[in-house]
């Protein structure tokens, strides 16, 4: 993933974070802060997953980044400039979808986009109609552009919201739950759109409560819980934090467990026809590049203990009949549970 060459006169230095916050805090009333001392750093060119259960402070953070609400303490920089102070210079270069789309039901889809574009004082009115048409095309709404927005389905509204974020070439896209309300086909389309935009050099900041979604598209991720940032880094680094488990499917569970224990596996769980265990940390550890963003079993994700091939040979040598053998890759969900010690539920 190549970082965009942002050599603009007022832009950030190349390689400088696209989003940067220092001690960003928002407190409503006297309760616990909604966002507490957030230090976020989003590298240019990344697809950055912003993860956390509902109520963990993701949307409040995004609203502070976009200058909609004033932080109680701390500050944020967007594209190298302070927010909300530089909003007029920065925001035209940022596309956003915040907490779902909001549309004028009595206007057509096209008229909605024309209005949002007119709201941007730096958008050229001479190219407005063409840019609106392109954006509608890009999200697959060209055919429904003349319909009143109140007749749109939730998925169509979501697409129109995305089109509004794509009215101009953007350096940063902030997408809050972009696949909400979409069917699986729509979700796939959005994911490929996000990848396409990132390939063009746009940094994408994607919030979601769907771990799976983040895992599929993101290169980096940050995890929020109860207003605090509990981890951030590349998806590979995060997944490496929670080691994967080795799973053996066999009718000879007792013997398999004995062999695996001999080879240093810990936390063995013996099921009816299945034994799983945690591989010991090896000398090298898992390289960050080892775990790709793609799915599927990934042996290197287990850490750098004994070679799984040797383990399998040992099992067979001991007369264990192996039906299936493989690594269960650590998912972000495992990471999340490991980090917070809790399930992925709404924070109280």
């Amino acid at each position: 993933m190549a970082p965009p060459s942002s050599n603009g006169e007022d832009g950030a230095a190349p390689g400088a974070p696209v989003i940067e916050t220092h001690g960003l805090t928002k407190r409503y009333g006297s309760g616990p802060p909604a966002v507490d001392g957030l230090d976020l750093s989003v590298p240019p060119g990344s697809i950055f997953g912003f993860l956390g259960p509902n109520g963990s402070g993701k949307t409040t953070t995004i609203r502070m980044l976009m200058g909609l609400i004033e932080p109680t303490a701390g500050g944020a920089r967007l594209l190298g400039e302070p927010m909300p102070g530089a909003a007029r210079r920065v925001l035209p270069r940022v596309g956003a979808l915040i907490e779902g789309p909001a549309l004028y039901g009595f206007l057509t889809g096209r008229a909605n986009l024309l209005r949002y574009d007119a709201a941007d004082p730096t958008a050229d009115p001479r190219t407005r109609a063409a840019r609106v048409a392109t954006a509608l095309e890009r999200v697959g709404l060209a055919a429904a552009a003349g319909k009143k927005a109140r007749a749109y389905s939730l998925g169509m509204k979501q697409r129109l919201g995305l089109a509004a974020a794509l009215l101009r070439p953007r350096e940063l896209l902030v997408l809050d739950e972009p696949t909400n309300g979409l069917d699986p086909q729509g979700m796939r389309e959005i994911r490929s759109l996000v990848r396409e935009l990132a390939a063009d050099g746009t940094t994408v900041f994607l919030s979601s409560h769907l771990l799976d979604e983040i895992e599929q598209v993101c290169t980096h991720a940050a995890v929020m819980s109860r207003g605090r940032l509990i981890a951030q880094g590349t998806v590979a680094e995060l997944a490496a934090g929670a080691r994967g488990r080795l799973a053996v499917t066999t009718p000879d569970t007792a013997e398999a467990a004995r062999v695996l224990k001999e080879h240093g596996l810990t936390d063995l769980v013996v099921g009816e026809d299945r034994v799983t265990g945690e591989l010991p940390p090896g000398p090298g550890g898992a390289g960050p590049e080892a775990v790709g963003a793609g799915g599927g079993p990934d042996p290197a994700g287990m850490g750098g203990g004994p070679d799984p091939a040797d383990l399998n040979a040992a099992l067979v040598a001991a007369g264990v009949r192996v039906r299936a053998f493989g690594a269960e890759r650590a998912s972000l969900e495992d990471v999340f549970v490991a980090l917070t010690g809790e399930g992925f539920d709404v924070a109280g």
Partner: peptide
């Protein structure tokens, strides 16, 4: 490809918005 896109955006910005553009919202 990334460079051309970002480059195009900067050309547009550097040409500078016309002060009249701000009236677009009023008209709308």
């Amino acid at each position: 490809r990334a460079e051309t896109v970002v480059g195009a955006a900067e050309v547009r910005v550097s040409r500078g918005p016309s002060p009249l553009w701000t009236l677009g919202l009023l008209r709308n």
